[in-house]
Nucleic acid binder design. Sequence first.
DNA 1: AATGAATGAGGGTTCATTCAT
DNA 2: CATGAATGAACCCTCATTCAT
Lengths: 208, 208, 208, 208
Amino acid sequence: MRERKQIPSLVKDEKLIKKRREQMIDAAVSLFIQSGFHKTTTREIANKAGFSIGTLYEYIESKEDILYLVCDAIHQELEERLLEAVQENQKGIDSLKVAMSHFIRTMSVMQDRVLLIYQEAKSVPKDTISYVLDREEKITEIFENILLRGIEDGSIQLDRKMTKLMAHNITVLGEMWAFRRWALTKHFTLEEFIETQTRLIVDQISAI
Amino acid sequence: MRERKQIPSLVKDEKLIKKRREQMIDAAVSLFIQSGFHKTTTREIANKAGFSIGTLYEYIESKEDILYLVCDAIHQELEERLLEAVQENQKGIDSLKVAMSHFIRTMSVMQDRVLLIYQEAKSVPKDTISYVLDREEKITEIFENILLRGIEDGSIQLDRKMTKLMAHNITVLGEMWAFRRWALTKHFTLEEFIETQTRLIVDQISAI
Amino acid sequence: MRERKQIPSLVKDEKLIKKRREQMIDAAVSLFIQSGFHKTTTREIANKAGFSIGTLYEYIESKEDILYLVCDAIHQELEERLLEAVQENQKGIDSLKVAMSHFIRTMSVMQDRVLLIYQEAKSVPKDTISYVLDREEKITEIFENILLRGIEDGSIQLDRKMTKLMAHNITVLGEMWAFRRWALTKHFTLEEFIETQTRLIVDQISAI
Amino acid sequence: MRERKQIPSLVKDEKLIKKRREQMIDAAVSLFIQSGFHKTTTREIANKAGFSIGTLYEYIESKEDILYLVCDAIHQELEERLLEAVQENQKGIDSLKVAMSHFIRTMSVMQDRVLLIYQEAKSVPKDTISYVLDREEKITEIFENILLRGIEDGSIQLDRKMTKLMAHNITVLGEMWAFRRWALTKHFTLEEFIETQTRLIVDQISAI
DNA sequence: AATGAATGAGGGTTCATTCAT
DNA sequence: CATGAATGAACCCTCATTCAT
């Protein structure tokens, strides 16, 4: 997997860089969600982050860097939350159920941010775009690994060639809750959604 | 369903309006795909459309109107292509298989434009956003209707309450080919994809 | 000699381009003389030229382009004025006297603009710098040609190898009036200066 | 002659002031030569000087002060080098030959810095500009004094009224090597240049 | 005396939109 | 109807300078 890009900063104190960038990311996330990347100005971000435009540019080199930091941070949280739910010490099929449920709940909590990534990732700086896409794929890989484990331990029945596609399906059937919420919430509760999506997958690959 | 928005034009001749707007949309689509809505200038659109910036503004009121027209045109084509494949005179389950296959092939052909809608729809003028979302839902409704017909004719077994969600799943599992192509085409052919996605759904709801 | 650079313009009407650029150059020259290139803002130039900042950028691509246009225009006038005084139908030595006198008077008239070139030429865009320097050398070449003609017709006695250097001397001894005026005008009139400088050169190379 | 300007410093220790300012000047000279005064940032100067931007401002009050210090230092060295070559115990005309040769060699060694002064002197703070110009004139005065001595001792024949102008000519004919080097070095060696320039002047004013 | 993070006015440039021709 | 020159608000970014530590 490609390396995370190091964004240069004029400030030397690493702790301070971390802190200021966190402020910046928080501000940017809420503004981007509200108005999108292009309609948000750097001044607005600086303002909301609680410092001046000059200070903002002490910690990044361009507005696009902020988008990269935002995408990176969101993916980071996404991944952490997901991994946290993966239990290695149970059957693959059970692990999958738990992971899917957890994943969809995460989509519910992070729906704005997931949507944000879907819509703005294309504007990320050219030299980091592949890192961001890799990051997206990494989430799918987590599901793929669970599937492989299930095949191994016999709890999942699935052509090995199809694990990748099934993993993508799982991911997309979960992310749906984020990017189609305007339609889904009109008719279904989160619990119903989790139940249905999990069953759709599990029925297809369950060994029994 | 909400009405299509009437975008005012300074020009009276309806035929001309239609022609000019088509030129405009064609130009805009290819430019938006290339660089996104915000990075494309109205000048570029006018240029590529083959007329002047002044003329452009004879047929729309703002740049956002172009995005609306583009989204509308893409949805229009999407819907037409999909409806064209729906045969009323066969069992619901068979109709579904054909429709899904056709839908995914359409995603393959129109992937750039589908992606475009996914990424830029949020920038559509506030007063038309719900029309655009409705339009998106309409596609799902086509699948929902097939499902209902299948339940009616006994070829599909599915809790009536779940038809909406299953229709969304079908749509999303198909659209995937457009918005995850960077990952999918590395490992699967279009035919494999169609085969797998169709089975995932059919297995779940087939009456036998 | 290198080609004059074509600066792109968004406007098509060539006549208008010429007119607007002239306005722009006039404004820029007086502002650059007053405050220098770097301290003059594009807004000031547009203002003084009588149009908006937007219009300014319809006729150039960057602030540096204005400096290039300014340098080019000044050299143009310099060259025209000088050539206008060169008579081909007299002895080289006499031609030289007339040309030097005329050149120095031109320096007197154009002292601000000559100084401007001396001080700001270094800021001209990289890809045009050699054209600007060539332009400067062209003036020297005019004097060199007169010298060569004088050697040919026997009115001037000078080692052929030294014509280039002597031509540079003539140029610099004349330009002095522009870039050392703060010291010279305290003690000498223009006429005294012309008389002395001409003699210094003529005495050195006169054939008799 | 006007007094050297005292630039205030927040630091008391005179020795330290001298040391830090020397570091600062060295750094600034090389940066100004490379990119010019306006394109060089105070940060860059502090960096290259080996201390922080905060420290820089302990020893000056504004960026322009640095330019003043730079010009002053260059003039200082110029003057020292020139005076070092002036022998009081020989005939004026011989003294002049030696001084011119030495001066031109100095131009060769210091060409970048001489050019720098020519191009940036105008940006020196308003209240110090006349001091800087005086400094320039001082160099001319050295030549003027030699001329006067030559007239006195009969080795030079020159209208007393013309000594000032001749001194300027000598200076400019020497400085040429610095500010026209791009053209001159293509055709002449330093020795040829010295030989020719000296003869041009000496022939004109030699008593015999 | 030294540091370097913070500031914000101000600069160059873009581009959606208008309107006289 | 078509044109395209003109407009200026607004954007991103820089950098000289300050001041708390």
